[in-house]
Design a protein around this nucleic acid. Structure first.
Lengths: 146, 146
DNA sequence: CTAAACCCTGCACTGGACTCCATAGCAAGC
DNA sequence: GCTTGCTATGGAGTCCAGTGCAGGGTTTAG
């Protein structure tokens, strides 16, 4: 399978594919007699996993780390551990996204509620969110809060 | 409230705060007699929202757009629409993350199952995932698939 | 024989989002 | 008055993740 087909299936550009191979996100791809890359099903498989993890927010560096361990050979426990770690990362990410989502929902729900006032005064990290929920969602100077 | 306190509460660096103000992600902050920024509760409020949206994956450009709309004054429907859009984006993101998560889980669960073989042959976008689920999660050249 | 449509390489460049730097003002403590 | 510690500024530099480009090769179609 050539570069173009892979690009079309996975959705990475030819340049990105080459870049990923160069930096080690994907392993070196076999070449044909002309030196052209010949992607095999297992390559596609790996690239697909890469795409999933990238879409899930992993950095290139993390993907390289991941790929290295995989290429090291029979290192299943380590690979499994990485996957497990990634699972946890994804779970955390989802939890956080959900929190933001709920905050946003709250903001939408209470958009018209201009009666809520927040008191100035002490304010620390733990209270910012609470305060935010009560706030009027306006830029500072549209209403003086003195 | 001075720059340092805000940095500590929100978790943006002083430089980032200045950068955001410069590009318009946060509105111009009032200054004291020395020209020092004096962040007021409503500023903090806005910065907190900014942080949420940024963490949720919005680009600086999107944040500027959002901020502009907000500063334009009574433009609630437009603001609300943006929040609603973001809500949808977050929902989609979560769904996709969950999909990756489940794929990963499957991979972990079937890690030892070396009997599964995937056939080379036709392969298109719709089948990559299916194929991937059957694959052995190895780099291409550790086992020849000819 | 030539053009089109692929592919290869190294390296320079871009865009986004900060981050650092040099220089300088103010305020408090010694 | 001097040092320390905060603040300010414009502008340059950095890092990440690609993206583009010049220069070149092979195969197929006309």
């Amino acid at each position: 399978m050539n570069r173009k087909e892979v690009s079309e299936i996975i959705g990475f550009s030819a340049d990105t594919l080459r870049y990923y191979e160069r930096v080690g996100v994907i392993p070196p791809i076999k070449r044909d007699k002309n030196g052209y890359r010949d992607y095999r099903p297992n390559d596609l498989n790996w690239i697909f996993l890469t795409k999933c993890l990238k879409d899930a927010g992993l950095s290139i560096e993390a993907l390289i780390e991941f790929s290295k361990l995989n290429q090291k050979g029979e290192n299943e426990p380590a690979q499994k551990a990485i996957l497990q770690d990634q699972l946890e990362v994804l779970d955390q990410k989802m939890a956080e996204t959900k929190r933001t989502r709920d905050l946003l929902q709250h903001k939408i729900d209470t958009f018209e509620d201009h009666t809520a006032k927040f008191k100035s005064g002490e304010m620390d990290a733990d209270h910012v969110e609470e305060l935010w929920k009560m706030s009027e969602f306006k830029t500072p100077d549209q209403k003086s809060s003195h």
